[in-house]
Design a protein around this nucleic acid. Structure first.
Length: 395
RNA sequence: GCACCGGUGGCGAAGUGGCUAACGCGCUGGUCUGCAAAACCAGUAUUCGUCGGUUCAAUCCCGACCCGGUGCUCCA
């Protein structure tokens, strides 16, 4: 999570710490004959008492009943679709002694109780994978709203599963990768983040290695641009006059950026607005028509981008180093050779070689200069000779 | 089998009943550079799964079919 710059949750709820709340919830449902106990001591939810059942997933209950298979445990229930709130203890299972009897909570009630405990009976957003909409979320709504008599989550979002190399991710397909696997293959954390964030959550995305490379390149473009704008601010060569046309464009794209995100988090459209500005501003910079007054709004857009995408600051080397250290400690051998090579040279060594190269080039000893450049390139360090001096970056 | 969602250039991926079908990457040629890199310019989908239909007009609406994802049984 930290490697991908995903914020940690304020609260991580535990079902085992919420048993009391679950029992109270079921008792409230029981008091209205919505929860009922069967002979083996389990409690079920009476779906017939909740006419809205199916409103989230758009399921037609009638159709489901028709096609439903009856399994051996269901003979006691009043209706086939009624779901378990509390399960009577079975030999060898962990169980709690409660007024409902000895047993353990059903899956769905855990989530309702935890959500209501921390957020109250009504809250704004409830998310989950697309596989959970039915029956889990549907059941959460039913039991929660029957107990509280107020709307449960005001909005639901379901993230679509991603495809990996065009197929569904599975261990048997051999396309199941952990974050560490990807880092050890030499892919950067920022590229992984950017790729995953760039496709709106509601769409199914095809996660590919080629896509990771593309994302890394796209990030480089953004970082290079951000550095260029930053550097321009320290240059006297910049015209004092504001480029009004450019400024108007940036303002327009800033609005478009926000509007795209407001539109159900359309991250693809949002980042497109930023790239539009990158191109326009680069052109102005190239033509010397980028004014000092243009810097502020462009940087505002970059900040807006980074507030969501969070890829401009390069922390990749540190993340990769940590992954390699972990892998070595674990005795793993599947570490990309390039990664080890690039980690074998320190920033100081790079700076020293670049200084030597600059010196050689001043004496027009280009052969020596190129040799150093090649040497660095082999270690994954790319050099750029700019007007303001030499800059470098790790690939 | 049934239900829901999707199928857009080499790849990733937005989008809309009619305006040049965004954006990123890649590729080709060019500008700049000692050479590179970066940046920029030009080119790169007469076309949006297939076949029909509705419409003055469809990638976008409707139907069928093909392909992919999820659910429909347990567990969480």
């Amino acid at each position: 999570m930290d490697a991908l710059r995903v914020e940690r949750p304020e609260i991580i709820a535990r079902a085992t710490e919420t048993i009391g709340e679950m029992v109270a919830l079921i008792e409230r449902l029981a008091s209205e004959d919505i929860a009922y106990k069967v002979d083996d001591g389990s409690w079920y939810f009476r779906i017939a008492k909740f006419p809205d059942y199916g409103k989230l997933s758009g399921k037609d209950l009638e159709g489901i009943e028709d096609g439903a298979r009856v399994d051996v445990d269901e003979y006691e229930k009043d209706a086939k679709r009624d779901f378990a709130l509390w399960k009577a203890v079975k030999p060898g299972e962990h169980a709690w002694d409660t007024p409902l009897g000895t047993g353990r909570p059903g899956w769905h009630i855990e989530c309702s109780a935890m959500a209501m405990k921390h957020l109250g009976p009504s809250f704004d957003l409830h998310g989950g994978g697309e596989d959970l909409a039915f029956p889990h979320h549907e059941n959460e709504i039913a039991q929660s709203e029957c107990a509280s008599h107020v709307p449960f989550a005001r909005h639901w979002f379901h993230v679509r599963f991603l495809l990996v190399e065009g197929k569904k991710m599975s261990k048997s397909e051999g396309n199941f990768y952990t974050l560490r696997d990807l880092l050890l293959k030499g892919y950067r954390a920022s590229a992984i983040r950017f790729l995953l964030v760039s496709v709106p959550y509601r769409h199914q995305m095809n996660f590919t290695f080629e896509g990771l490379t593309e994302s890394a390149n796209a990030i480089e473009r953004l970082r290079t641009f951000a550095r260029r704008v930053e550097a321009a601010g320290g240059t006297l060569a910049l015209p004092a006059a504001l480029n009004a046309d450019l400024d108007a464009l940036v303002a327009e794209k800033l609005t478009a950026y926000g509007a795209a995100l407001d539109n159900d988090l359309n991250t693809a459209e949002a980042r497109a607005a930023v790239f539009d500005v990158v191109r326009a501003a680069n052109i102005a910079l190239d033509h010397g028509t980028f004014g000092r007054g243009n810097i502020a709004r462009v940087q505002k857009l970059l900040q807006a981008l980074d507030a969501v995408f969070d890829v401009l600051t390069d922390r990749d080397a540190d993340v990769s180093k940590a992954a390699v250290a972990w892998a070595k400690a674990e005795g793993r051998t599947d570490i990309a050779p390039d990664l080890l090579v690039s980690q074998s040279i320190s920033d100081q060594e790079i700076e020293a070689l670049i200084a030597e190269r600059t010196d050689a080039r001043k004496r027009r000893n280009f052969a020596r200069g190129d040799a150093i450049r090649n040497e660095l390139a082999e270690k994954g360090v790319l050099i750029e000779d700019g007007k303001a001096g030499v800059t470098w970056k790790r690939r």
